[in-house]
Write a protein that binds this DNA or RNA. Structure first.
Ligand SMILES: [Mn+2]
Ligand SMILES: [Mn+2]
Ligand SMILES: [Zn+2]
Ligand SMILES: [Zn+2]
Lengths: 124, 124
DNA sequence: ATATTATTGCGATTATATCGCATTAATAAA
DNA sequence: TTTATTAATGCGATATAATCGCAATAATAT
């Protein structure tokens, strides 16, 4: 299955990389306007996640947010960090601190998804 | 605004209390059958959260789960614990360990929502 | 017993995300 | 360069979770 480089892909990847925050589909659509179809954006984002170019986080608002993998090198993907969502301005950011996952015996973790919602410095 | 005790309310509260896991709307509806309306279940759960009888957690699957507040006494509600969702059997449980929320200066936290998904001991 | 109104049931609606399928276009092959 | 292959796209339909409007019901105060 040969991957192809398309206009949509590069536009979306650029948007992800340019943003210092995690972005929702809505945000990307707004950024790109009608130049890229809604379904295409979803599909490209899903592919990015599969390919390990981006990671997906499910917000405590139930929506999906995406962020480019910056520190992940090779096939090592670990995203054990929290995210902050501002209840006022809506922005979502990756927090620096890594979270140590402590699980009772027998549990096999596959993914971590953590959110703190509240008010960011600009909105507090 | 006087709160009233209704059949739906007690049925749903009982379901919450009897369950050792966090439950979704779907689960409650299945438990209660058609005796309680879908919208009513949602509304009762929302009221429980407002009243501090239950707490809501948004799963990394984007769905809402609810658990009765057991250790919360009075108006002190702190739910800084992680949840585990099994990718195979779908169950969601509250994990014992409390998470310490470290935020950069200026951030005002309001709510914590954390999930680890993977495989539970029974499914691993 | 009666009045008040919180709560319910039901259908319609919103919101987020995915799917099916014909068409387009990126890349490989000739 | 031209042609063939098929990954990726556009568009409308569909799926799923949750909320809303409003008339009817029923819990509680009087
Ligand atoms: Mn990564
Ligand atoms: Mn509580
Ligand atoms: Zn803000
Ligand atoms: Zn399981």
């Amino acid at each position: 299955m040969h991957v192809r480089n398309t206009k949509s892909k590069s536009l979306i990847l650029e948007t992800l990389k340019n943003s210092k925050q995690a972005v929702s589909h809505e945000k990307i659509q707004a950024e790109l306007g009608e130049s890229v179809d809604r379904a295409t954006i979803y599909r490209v984002l899903n592919r990015f996640c599969e390919e390990g170019i981006a990671h997906r986080i499910t917000g405590d608002d139930g929506k999906q947010y995406f962020a480019a993998c910056l520190k992940c090198q090779g096939k090592e993907h670990r995203h054990n960090h929290l995210h902050f969502r501002c209840l006022n301005c809506g922005k979502v950011e990756c927090l620096p601190n890594e979270i140590e996952l402590k699980l009772p015996a027998g549990y096999r973790p596959a993914n971590f998804n953590g959110f703190i919602s509240g008010h960011c410095p600009a909105c507090a």
